[in-house]
């Protein structure tokens, strides 16, 4: 019974949201606002049930872990954003989070996203016994990376055989990258539509399996 009501509600609001493709209308607006409202409500309930209750309220109330008042107080300081005169207090929890995240994340992020990527482009263009496909791939990778970097080097005019030709190749490399991303984006958007049509035809109308 509840499942049927859920499916009908989801189907009606799916159609309401897609009605925007014809033109904007109150049904679409209703669906849009409900998504935001329900998501926020769900967020609050899960956060309370999964985090606040078992990790803050229960330990303080049942086990007397009063030290948890310190992080609770820090968390509550966020609410001072709503009161202009004491809004500066909200900077303390933010500073704590920012400091912790930077301290913990910076070295690992540098390693994961910069150093490893640098390492991956330092390749032998050719060595004995290397298949020709790999040689071509390595040449394209190394030259393509260099050309794309030259395009973003603005301290010298993009003229001459090195900076001029390099930046021209660079723009082609970047455009090929954008093209691949665009192709995948189209695929992604169609996938989302397929998901909703599968829901409408299968779960709601039951006309396909």
């Amino acid at each position: 019974m509840y499942e049927t009501i859920g499916i009908w509600t989801a189907a009606i609001f799916t159609l309401a949201v897609y009605s925007f493709l014809y033109k904007e209308n109150p049904l679409y607006r209703l669906g849009e606002h409900l998504v935001v409202g329900i998501s926020t409500g769900y967020f609050i309930v899960v956060t309370y049930e999964q985090v606040l209750k078992p990790r803050l309220i229960d330990p303080i109330a049942n086990d007397g872990e009063y030290i948890l008042f310190i992080p609770a107080l820090l968390g509550l300081l966020y609410i001072t954003r709503f009161f202009p005169k004491i809004a500066w207090l909200s900077r303390y929890p933010m500073a704590f989070i920012m400091g912790t995240s930077m301290g913990v994340g910076f070295p690992l992020s540098m390693k994961a996203s910069v150093l490893r990527q640098l390492e991956a482009t330092i390749l032998p263009l050719y060595s004995a016994g290397m298949p020709w496909q790999i040689v071509v791939g390595n040449v394209v990778l190394v030259l393509g990376t260099l050309a794309a970097l030259i395009y973003f080097f603005f301290s010298k005019p993009h003229k001459g055989p090195f900076f001029g030709t390099g930046s021209k190749i660079g723009i082609w490399v970047i455009m090929i990258g954008f093209g691949a991303t665009f192709g995948f984006t189209v695929m992604g958007r169609i996938s989302l539509l397929i998901g909703r049509i599968q829901f409408l035809l299968n779960d709601w109308l039951g006309v396909i399996k």
């Binding site: 994961a112 490893r116 990527q117 390492e119 991956a120 990778l141 990258g177 691949a180 991303t181 995948f184 984006t185 695929m187 992604g188 958007r189 996938s191 397929i194 998901g195």
Partner: peptide, 26 residues
């Protein structure tokens, strides 16, 4: 990952940081 972001993370395969990647519905 979603198809939209598939190209963003292919670099992690090439660098050996990922075992593999599924991109989108495909």
């Amino acid at each position: 990952v979603t198809a939209v972001s598939a190209t963003d993370y292919t670099i992690f395969i090439q660098s050996g940081q990922l075992i593999g990647q599924m991109g989108g519905l495909r």
